[in-house]
Design a protein around this nucleic acid. Structure first.
Lengths: 336, 336
DNA sequence: TTGTACGCGTTATCAA
DNA sequence: TTGATAACGCGTACAA
């Protein structure tokens, strides 16, 4: 490893002069500076992150909280996409991105301890078990934090505009002539699920439609099988099929469609179905799914922007939703 | 921030004694040790990563090379899943996981420079543009590296057993009575694509089947549209449809199925189609896809194991495939 | 404009 | 068993 001392020796100057040259200080002659930079390059000098951070007390690093305790992880297209956009944005600003861990060497640490250990400038909570005992300690620590929808609400949150999405779905379905529109909600522990069901009620009520509670059902989870089960329950409690179904996720919608097929119904002829997310493959299912597209890239980027602003003290941390990202209605074959 | 000096003051001893207590040295009395640990806990002491790493010259950190220059990224289920399994494994051993970046602060760095800057113990190449000029420098640097299939072959590689998978597909299809079996290969810049097409040729030849070059076609990419286009080309060059199609990825298979439908063919009645990957949603498409399941978790974990062994000098680095992970044939509705 | 000297928080050596 | 003291590599007052 070549250090600034090695360079100093070769350049015939002191280490501090080298340091100045490398950090383009203004208190150094242009000639010396270029000379030193040339030598540094020649010798293959690379600064040492630890020494630099120790001296400056400045980490330029961001922690990612991505818990795999849940059955939702990196491979989940939505969170994966959001994280990628986030990473791209902050790396371009010169930050490094490290996963928050619960261990360092042989020692176990809490999230907060790890963040202090690494002296991260901020944390992006992507997914986390909201019941994790370590979580509260972290969110209340004062370290800049942002999150995307995942139920942690005492932290600045970037989230899709669920109301807008729901309104677009319902208006579209009603325009198409659907009278009774059911809603298969996501699990209520998810904030997005709550927002969507609230919006469903609100939009219909404002449109003068009386809410039929039999048309509402909560899925156990966001996945395919939960959607399938929910559909069976819905048909049973409603005593038949509605004109249309608004599902809280694409996976739920696909599960519902599968159940409908099993029951002998056709989509969209007998029932229209709309999902939420716009995951890649819904383009290719048959019928291709009409859905609300969430803007993963924008969500990730907005989360990054917000976190950087917090880090730079340009804004104050305010718990709850700080940014709503517009969604889009993508019309395909599952509605007519 | 509380340091070992603060603890030393409170405990009435020297900082070096504190250090010993905290690192469970054997040259310290049990009583002192417990006393100091108690005080440290009371004061909320957390060690400083930078200072420790600077002193020990030991980083306990692994870099992840995950390039988003390609149109394949974190949101890709396969690589996302592999990375997650990798991360879980190494974090449990006490390593921290950081994305390799091309910038630090305002300065641009090559991959290798970044790795030196951070002093990482090893690198896991998940995805990368194989033509990246920075890549060679990194792979030849001597830093422990592993990768999974992505075309970088001068590095220890963990990969699915493509031969086994191909053989299972072909045997199965032939058993079902398929005479002419087409292969829609992946792009040849991918090593897995090459392996699969080679296996296709070899297995059939060994079974006494003469290879009909008209039954082979290379898709431009691994995605849906490439599969769709490839199918049209295949039908055109073959002058009809074969009994069965073995596609190099699920996305390709789904694209092919879509094209077949457009042409008025039924799957599996007229043509059987088999994919490769077993991505989540293929369970739910109609027809549900018969495919070869890749074991993402095992691949990620094996990559982790191998890298750790390299880091610990338990093994030597050998370029090329170091581990083949078994695959599994998952039979669903797209074959009969 | 340059160099000296010290601090960042920790580990490690060696003498006490 | 404990405690000075010197690294580790870098940045930065402050003096020259």
């Amino acid at each position: 490893m070549v250090t600034i001392y090695d360079i100093a020796k070769k350049a015939g100057c002191s280490s501090s002069t080298v340091s100045k040259a490398l950090n383009n200080s203004s208190t150094i002659s242009k000639k010396r500076k270029e000379e030193i930079i040339a030598i540094a390059k020649l010798m293959g000098y690379v600064p040492n992150s630890n020494a630099r951070q120790l001296a400056t007390k400045n980490s330029w690093s961001i922690g990612i909280l991505f818990s795999e305790d849940l059955n939702i992880g990196l491979e989940h297209h939505f969170f994966g996409g959001v994280l990628e956009a986030f990473k791209t944005y902050v790396e371009d600003l010169g930050y490094e991105v490290t996963f928050v861990s619960k261990k360092v060497g042989h020692q176990s640490l809490s999230y907060l301890e790890w963040c202090k250990y690494k002296n991260v400038d901020g944390v992006f909570i992507v997914t986390v078990d909201v019941d994790d005992v370590n979580l509260k300690e972290l969110t209340e620590s004062g370290i800049p934090i942002v999150t995307v929808d995942n139920g942690v609400l005492n932290v600045p949150t970037i989230i899709s505009d669920n109301y807008q999405g729901t309104r677009m779905v319902l208006n579209y379905l009603r325009l198409k002539g659907a009278k009774n529109i059911a809603h298969i909600a996501g699990p209520m522990r998810s904030f997005a699920a709550q927002e969507r069901i609230d919006a469903y009620r609100d939009v219909l009520t404002k449109a003068g439609v009386e809410i039929d509670e039999k048309l509402i059902i909560e899925a156990n989870n966001y996945d395919f099988n939960s959607g399938k089960n929910a559909l069976y329950q819905l048909v049973s409690q409603y005593g038949g099929v509605p004109d249309a179904i608004y599902a809280a996720s694409d996976d739920i919608a696909l599960g519902a469609i599968r159940a409908l097929k099993e029951l002998g119904y056709k989509v969209p002829e007998d029932v229209c179905v709309v999902g939420f997310d716009n995951i890649e493959l819904t383009k290719y299912t048959s019928p291709a799914l009409t859905t609300i597209a969430q803007d993963k890239v924008k969500i990730g980027r907005e989360a990054a922007k917000h976190l950087i602003a917090l880090i730079n003290h340009e804004i104050e941390s305010t718990p709850g939703i700080v940014k709503r990202v517009p969604v889009e209605l993508v019309i395909r074959e599952s509605t007519k």
